[in-house]
Amino acid sequence: METKNNHFFYVLECADHSLYAGYTNNLDKRVAAHNSGKGAKYTKAHLPVKCVYFETYETKQEAMRAEYAFKQLKRSEKLKYIGGAPR
């Protein structure tokens, strides 16, 4: 399913229902890293996490641009962007 040329902007829902956005080129491995406590300082304190949204891009720059733009949004706008309240 995933190839080396895929670049992902992804959104995780943490155990406390907070959202975390990031970039990776291997989504499954990155989510597993977050859940093992090795993904990011923020998610380590908010385990477990689940991926609730992602977009695929051809370049790292495009994916990171999407991540940056998402992080500028208010929470209500983020929820609307990903299609509603996380489960």
Results as ranks from 00 to 15, higher is better:
Ala85Pro: 04
Tyr53Cys: 05
Tyr42Gln: 07
Ala21Ser: 12
Leu27Glu: 08
Pro86Arg: 11
Ser76Glu: 15
Pro86His: 09
Tyr10Arg: 06
Glu13Tyr: 00
Gln72Thr: 09
Ala32Arg: 12
Asn25Cys: 10
Val49Cys: 13
Asn5Pro: 00
Lys41Ser: 14
Gly84Ser: 09
Lys41Trp: 04
Arg87Met: 11
Lys4Tyr: 09
Ala85Ser: 12
Val11Thr: 00
Ser76Tyr: 12
Asn25Leu: 04
Arg75Ser: 06
Tyr42Lys: 14
Ala63Gln: 08
Lys4Gln: 11
Lys29Met: 11
Lys44Val: 02
Thr59Ser: 14
Val52Glu: 01
Lys41Asp: 07
Ala21Gln: 10
Lys38Asp: 11
Val52Met: 03
Ala66Cys: 13
Leu27Arg: 07
Ala33Tyr: 03
Val52Thr: 03
Tyr10Gln: 00
Val49Ala: 07
Ala32Cys: 06
Glu67Ala: 07
Glu13Gly: 01
Leu73Gly: 03
Glu13Gln: 15
Glu77Leu: 07
Met64Asn: 11
Arg75His: 12
Ala85Asn: 13
Asn6Arg: 01
Ala85Gln: 14
Pro48Gln: 12
Ser18Glu: 06
Gln61Arg: 15
Lys38Val: 06
Lys41Thr: 12
Ala21Asn: 09
Pro86Asp: 07
Phe9Asp: 00
Ser18Thr: 10
Asn35Leu: 02
Glu58Trp: 02
Asn25Ala: 11
Glu58Asp: 15
Pro86Ile: 04
Val49Pro: 01
Gly22Phe: 00
Cys14Pro: 11
Lys4Asp: 11
Gly39His: 04
Ala63Lys: 09
Cys51Arg: 13
Val52Lys: 06
Lys50Ile: 12
Ala45Pro: 05
Tyr20Leu: 02
Gly84Met: 06
Lys80Arg: 15
Leu47Asp: 04
Glu55Asp: 12
Lys74Met: 13
Leu19Pro: 01
Leu47Glu: 01
Ala63Arg: 10
Ala85Phe: 11
Asp16Ile: 02
Cys51Ser: 08
Leu47Ala: 10
Ala21Trp: 07
Ala21Cys: 13
Tyr81Gly: 06
Lys71Tyr: 09
Lys71Pro: 02
Phe8Pro: 01
Tyr68Ser: 13
Ala40Arg: 11
Phe54Asp: 09
Gly84Ala: 04
Thr56Ser: 05
Ala63Trp: 05
Phe8Asp: 07
Met1Cys: 08
Phe70Leu: 03
Gly84Phe: 06
Gly83Arg: 11
Leu47Trp: 12
Tyr10Ser: 01
Tyr53Leu: 06
His17Val: 00
Thr59Met: 08
